[in-house]
């Protein structure tokens, strides 16, 4: 339980720092590398998340990068995590924990849906 709360807190904290620009995606990647997690990239382009289904392990980092010229978000279906507005070229990262909600979508374009799958 304590570990679970810590992971959730870390996820929220890292996501916030990356979004607010206080921590770069590179710093997150280096931090995660120290924790032996793998870094994954999801590109938002042509009105799709690519890949739309991403397989990860707990502790891995996912970075979303918006390549479209219109803004998008990557938002959990229950809004427990949210990139908020991503303009072209902007990124958002989060570390996957056992509390991470796996189905997500673009809040602006609700037909853009995707999911994270946890590998055993």
């Amino acid at each position: 339980m304590w570990l679970s709360l810590t992971r959730r807190a870390a996820l929220v904290c890292v996501a916030h720092l990356v979004f607010s620009g206080q921590l770069s995606a590179t710093e997150v990647a280096q931090d995660t590398a120290a924790n032996t997690g793998t870094n994954h990239r999801v590109y938002i382009e042509d009105m799709q998340f690519s890949p739309a289904k991403l397989q990860v392990r707990f502790g891995d980092t996912i970075t979303w990068i918006n390549n479209d010229f219109i803004p998008h978000t990557a938002t959990a279906v229950d809004k427990s995590w949210n990139s908020k507005n991503l303009a072209k070229g902007e990124e958002f990262s989060l570390i996957v924990s056992d509390n991470t909600v796996l189905d997500y979508y673009c809040f602006y374009h609700p037909n853009m849906i995707a999911k994270i799958e946890i590998l055993n």
Binding site: D46, M47, D68, F69, H109, M112
Partner: peptide, 16 residues
Amino acid sequence: EQGLKIFKQHEEHAAM
């Protein structure tokens, strides 16, 4: 072509 992809999403969103 890029615009059409965006507007098709809008059409689906409007249908929803």
